[in-house]
């Protein structure tokens, strides 16, 4: 899965902000904010990843157990899916 084209991540005054551009600005009328670990997952999803890859990524950077990271990744992904921001692989 990966983030749809048309979302730009910028860090402004220490805040990680995602803004839709082009057609996505019409489809998604708003902005997103991320914390540091959310930014890590977002950047991994720009390149494309899966649940396992994202879980591993969290465990590489942070001191966290796999089950905790896994469930947190699921919650994060679920929120993006709800707003139709992800492209799912077939």
């Amino acid at each position: 899965m990966k983030i749809k084209e048309g979302y730009v991540l910028r860090t402004v005054a220490g805040e990680h902000i995602v803004v839709p551009i082009g057609n996505e600005a019409v489809n998604f009328n708003g902005i997103l904010t991320l914390n540091n670990s959310g930014k890590l997952l977002w950047e991994a999803l720009i390149a494309g990843s899966d649940i396992k890859g994202l879980t591993t990524k969290l465990m590489e950077i942070f001191v966290v157990e796999e089950t905790v990271a896994y469930h947190d990744v699921l919650a994060f992904i679920s929120k993006l899916r709800t707003h139709n921001i992800l492209i799912e692989n077939d």
Binding site: I31, N35, S37, L58, F62, V63, D72, F76, K79, L80
Partner: peptide
């Protein structure tokens, strides 16, 4: 293995806040 543990950061749950503009 211990060094690897020390190099990692204190965990923060990944959060995304979605702010939708109203018409």
């Amino acid at each position: 293995m211990k060094k690897e543990q020390e190099d990692r950061l204190i965990y923060e749950k990944p959060e995304v806040e979605i702010i939708e503009f109203q018409l």
